[in-house]
């Protein structure tokens, strides 16, 4: 069927483009792995966890999702909009749903690769994997939906340069106040409360709850994550403009 052929070709093109963007690979792979290795060896912050890896691996998995679903997707889509590619695709038989499907597969494929690399790195450093991983993956998918919504909202409303700067800036801020490499409870109380309504902290706390030995999943994190996963794509679908 022609729709499948079109979506398949689109997916292959999107993957090729992603793999050709060196800077996007850096954000997607080098930074999460670098953070994992660095902070597991240099204990800059002591956490409530006996093993810093129990804190770090879930946080870095969340970080990886943020880098791919928000940063890479936003920048790639923002420039496709700038170059008139999105407009041009609008007059081909490839539907918007087809384009979205191809982008989804692309994001999930990169994330799967990140997941494997991070988990393997964690295991090599002495981390232990348990059955909580299944629930963790569910949260990571929810996080993907939330961050993709944020990324596409930026890409579909801002100029490409503003999307580039904004997505990277947001990535850096959320890296620090998202409970990813640095514990939330070490933040000043006001900042901690603010951070808890953002998707980054909600995702890292949920994933950490699912993976930590004997850990429990905080109720607030699941609620906040779910709200972002529903709200952000809704906003994106409303405000997205196909032409810059």
């Amino acid at each position: 069927m022609s729709t499948r052929r079109a979506i398949g070709a689109q997916t292959r093109a999107e993957l090729a483009l992603t793999l050709r963007r060196g800077e996007s690979l850096l954000v997607s792979f080098a930074i999460p792995v670098g953070i994992l290795v660095f902070f597991s060896q240099v204990s800059t912050v002591d956490t409530a966890y006996r093993d810093p890896l129990d804190f770090l691996v879930p946080g870095v998995l969340a970080l990886a999702v943020m880098s791919t679903a928000m940063v890479s997707l936003a920048i790639a889509t923002g420039y496709e909009r700038r170059y008139g590619v999105l407009k041009r695709l609008g007059s081909t038989p490839l539907s918007r749903g087809g384009l979205l499907a191809a982008k989804t597969v692309n994001v999930l494929a990169i994330e799967a690769l990140q997941f494997v690399v991070i988990v393997v790195t964690g295991l090599a450093l002495g981390w232990h994997l348990d059955a909580g991983i299944v629930l963790a993956v569910v949260f990571l998918v929810l996080g993907t939906v939330a961050f993709a919504g944020i990324g596409l909202t930026m890409a579909g409303t801002l100029r490409a340069e503003a999307t580039l700067a904004g997505a990277n800036g947001l990535f850096l801020v959320l890296l620090f106040i998202g409970g990813m490499a640095y514990p939330l409870d070490k933040l000043p109380t006001v900042l901690e409360e603010f951070a808890k309504v953002l998707p980054a902290a909600a995702l890292s706390a949920s994933v950490r709850g699912a993976l930590a030995p004997g850990g429990h999943i905080p109720g607030w994190s699941v609620v906040v994550l779910a709200v972002w996963a529903i709200g952000a794509p809704l906003v994106a679908s409303r405000v997205f403009r196909w032409e810059e």
């Binding site: 093109a13 483009l17 050709r20 170059y83 008139g84 407009k87 041009r88």
Partner: peptide
């Protein structure tokens, strides 16, 4: 054929 743009620069 658009007046300008419409091509993936990375392909």
């Amino acid at each position: 054929m658009l007046q300008e743009g419409g091509l993936y620069p990375g392909l």
